[in-house]
Amino acid sequence: MMRRGIAELPLHGGHVPRWLALRMKRLAELVIKLLVDEYGTQGVLERLADPVWFQALNNLIGMDWDSSGSTTVTAGIVKEVLSKEDLGIKAAGGKGAKSRKTPEELKQISRLYDLEAEEYIKTSRLVAKVDSVALQTGYQLYHHVFFVDQEGRWAIVQQGMNPQVKLARRFHWFSEKVESFTLEPHKGISGIKAEHALNTIARESKEYQKTLLDVVSESPTKIEREVKSVEALSKGYIPFYKPYEKREVLSILKRYESLGKIELNKRALELARELGVSSYDELLLIKGLGPSTLRALSLVLELVYDVHPSWKDPVTHPPDPFKFAYAVGGKDRVPFPVERGTYDDLISFLEKLLEKGKEEREVVKQVTKITKKWKFPEEEKRPT
């Protein structure tokens, strides 16, 4: 499971024992309180949206350093801490069925902070559509947590699972980073780069997006005929307007099929045409427009209109903050079993630190500089 010293995020079973979960919650609570006091709520959101910082927090509280649970457990603990404390930040959503409660929980948070709920619900839906439809790498979303502060800023951490290889990929968003939801909007993506990805949100996909909107404005029946003509291309039929070699068609088709079925949802296209969608954001939000339909449309754009999406995987951060696993150890005994005494000493130290003023904390900041250049023993870095 290792590549050049970098961990993947494999699917792990098991659970966090109660004695460890209680300590994780207390330690996470102390860390977040210190962060709010030092950097404000925006500073907390910015860090949650940082793949390396998020993974480091996971390691600090004692979770596995290289598992899919590093997202679900850590995000769940942070959400629980924020729900019990009045820190100016709340969270909605979670893993599986909990993610479907996001809209209702966002309404509750919006009432609490006097925000416009529908704006955040729309953002939640659009972000999920971007990472499941507009960006396709074989990962199916199953985890979505939406953090909101009292000023209306937000961060989103969501994760997908590739069921074939049983590996996870984590997507991070931060409101202050997003200029466009459909042009390189992520704060970061944690995972191992794939050989290719259907990436329709890369900056070089602007022409693709424009042409796609033009094609969708046409009759769904016409688009369906074009999909069938592409199928004919794969069987050797060569139309006069695009002299593709059969070998080339098959290689392009195979690349799309590696991501799943190619099926057109005509009802979704009819709805898009009726509504007269004028932006890629609006198109993605059309009910029924899923990954298979976008694959069909993209295939038509490539082989009929000679307009291409990007196939560059936008992963920014391979998960690797292994250094922080040395704080208290790891749940799966890597790099060593969690030491309860050390864990309790750390909690006690942070509790006392929280009581002190910012001036006194400066001393601690100076001490942390000592560890910045420390390297972990490479031989201890192994998958759990």
Rank of each mutant, 00 (worst) to 15 (best):
P377R: 04
V165D: 15
R267K: 14
K84H: 12
P309F: 04
Q159L: 08
Y142W: 04
K266S: 14
K373C: 13
Q140G: 10
T221C: 09
E380S: 12
P318N: 05
I252T: 05
G14I: 00
K246M: 15
F171A: 08
T74H: 07
E224Q: 11
P291R: 01
K242W: 11
V81K: 02
M2P: 13
Y241C: 13
F324V: 10
V216L: 09
H317P: 12
D149M: 03
L284T: 01
L253T: 08
A325T: 09
K365R: 13
P291E: 08
S68A: 07
E176N: 11
T316Y: 06
K222H: 09
I121V: 15
T368R: 10
A28Y: 03
L57C: 02
I109V: 07
H143V: 02
V81H: 02
E362K: 11
D345I: 12
A117M: 04
A232Q: 11
I192Y: 05
K166E: 15
K95T: 14
P220R: 01
L183T: 15
D345Y: 07
D64A: 14
R340C: 05
G5F: 03
L167V: 14
V52E: 14
K352D: 15
V307D: 07
G260F: 01
V148D: 04
D306A: 13
E195M: 05
R125S: 13
N59I: 05
P10A: 05
H143M: 00
H196L: 13
E184G: 13
I6T: 11
L297P: 01
G43T: 01
A296D: 10
M24W: 06
T71D: 10
K222I: 01
L294N: 03
S258R: 10
L34K: 02
K372F: 13
K287V: 06
L183H: 10
E282W: 08
R340M: 12
H308M: 12
K25P: 12
L264A: 06
R3I: 14
I192A: 05
L303E: 01
E282T: 06
F324W: 04
E218F: 08
E184W: 06
V44P: 03
E204F: 01
T368N: 08
K358N: 12
E231V: 07
P163T: 09
V78K: 00
P377T: 02
P337D: 02
L141H: 03
Y113N: 03
G138N: 04
H15L: 15
K242M: 13
K246V: 15
L35C: 09
L48K: 03
L30G: 06
L297K: 00
T74P: 08
V216R: 03
K206V: 13
D344C: 09
K235W: 09
S278H: 07
T41G: 06
L285I: 02
T182W: 00
S205W: 04
P239F: 02
V36P: 00
L250W: 03
L135F: 09
G341H: 04
L294G: 02
R23W: 07
K242Y: 14
R111N: 15
K381G: 11
L301D: 04
R340H: 09
A197R: 04
I238A: 07
A117E: 10
G69N: 05
L233W: 01
S70C: 12
H144P: 00
M1I: 12
P319W: 05
S298F: 05
V157M: 06
E119L: 15
Q158Y: 07
W19D: 12
P335H: 02
E355A: 04
E245P: 06
T72E: 09
L106Q: 00
